[in-house]
Design a protein around this nucleic acid. Sequence first.
DNA 1: CCCGGCGATACCCGGCGGGTATCGACCTCG
DNA 2: CGAGGTCGATACCCGCCGGGTATCGCCGGG
Lengths: 279, 279
Amino acid sequence: METRELRYFVAVAEELHFGRAAQRLGMAQPPLSRAVAQLERRLGAPLLTRSSRSVALTPAGEVLLAEGRAALAAVEAAERRTRRAGAADRPGVVLAVKAGASAELLAKLLDAYAAEPGAVPVEVLLCAVGEQGPALRDGRADVALLHLPFDTTAGLDTEELGTEGQVAVLPAGHALTGRTEVSLADLDDLPGLPPPRWSGPGGRPAGPGPEVRDHAQLLQLVQLGRTYTVLPESVRSQLPEGVVTVPVRDAARVTTVIAWPPHSRSRPVADLVATALRL
Amino acid sequence: METRELRYFVAVAEELHFGRAAQRLGMAQPPLSRAVAQLERRLGAPLLTRSSRSVALTPAGEVLLAEGRAALAAVEAAERRTRRAGAADRPGVVLAVKAGASAELLAKLLDAYAAEPGAVPVEVLLCAVGEQGPALRDGRADVALLHLPFDTTAGLDTEELGTEGQVAVLPAGHALTGRTEVSLADLDDLPGLPPPRWSGPGGRPAGPGPEVRDHAQLLQLVQLGRTYTVLPESVRSQLPEGVVTVPVRDAARVTTVIAWPPHSRSRPVADLVATALRL
DNA sequence: CCCGGCGATACCCGGCGGGTATCGACCTCG
DNA sequence: CGAGGTCGATACCCGCCGGGTATCGCCGGG
């Protein structure tokens, strides 16, 4: 199976429409139809059920969509990492972090690692919420800081770096800011203060709250009195003016982990992990 | 990057010889040279340093060899799993186990799962030592039983099923069989009884012992008085005539885990794992 | 009942992947 | 030191396949 065929199938499976998929791929519809039909012949199994009005996935198609996405990510990762390894101005290693999260830990880690013998330049890739895993899987990054239970570590090797509680982040002056502690129930349905909605494929259920992609955006919106949120305690070190935190009694504890792709044989990544564990 | 190019490069990188690689790929040498050169141009980085007498990998080449193998395994996995999902006589799920290991657990697991509502047929794939991980990664299997610390779980999701000690397995009548317990040191350099060598890429250091690929072969060789070995206690349930076990005081404890590919969304795999955890 | 949307089919063309022949570099050996 | 052998690169050719346009057939809706 060639990656070209896989890309074609994935596009059709995602669009469920040959015309749109062809457009997305920058090609005409007939060769796309033909390529997919040929893939089905080669695999010996129908992947799509077509009527002249609609396209749907067969069970085999569902499998190929899931597995194919993973395979394409692996191929992209190979390509990107090779390009980086061959580049003259190689950033020794790319570290992915959620924008605005673990700022203190990150600063300490970068300092400590830079002091190591044999340290290479570290490029920091600031990601939207939940993007660090995919960035690692498709080769945009070599190592990442993730936060459980929010991020998924499936398919990654990890080491635990620590856990912390969570605090509610509210606009200054809000009624709850007088409390020494709140519960999640207290935060439910605050009048005039809707919770934010995380952008991205995770889920964007329609609702009143503003859409955000990272912590920095979120804090700014809290500052403007447009939303509230619950974040790990460590955000306290970088709150803007006009926002207040209150510990949340019953929020899940957040575990920060450092993660890397399982077959990574890179010395800098190993050093970075070792350094993080010593902090 | 196309999988064809990747296959070509991996073949050359493994052989370090264009002629042999071309032969392995079933093609002539010139188009292979050209394809690799073209790949290097596209990636913008040299992958190989060639002299007319030898071929060697550049750092970028090393990266692409490692990443490319993983990517090719992912593509193969996609293909194989799709084929299986589309096959009429689909074996619902393929379970990989080291041949001869965890026999009792395996029997209980298969029985218990078969009794579950919604159980599908389970095909058991008996693997050579250390082959379950690769089988899982390239789609020959959907779920596997692994034994830590021998097998590697990198890149797999796992659940622990239990731990056990290890016993020395010796030919009946051997001097040590009278002992109630031995240590690893006692087993070192037994006169006339060399340790076995595991076949496969793991390592086959030259030595006197016979080469084996799984527990069944190993037990037979012990029975014949040609070697001894140290295995998890659970092998006791299936020893042939003429072999004796003695607990090993200081051997590492073995942990049996059930593992599956991280992006598996298969219901039967989830059920199988849940059943295993209830045992 | 006709129109419009959508996937499949028919057909054509150019490029690319694969082949053979040969070159050029370099090591080995007499 | 030169001849032969090994090995990768180059030159050149061909057939196929991937991509294009034109069009058909099916089917649902106004």
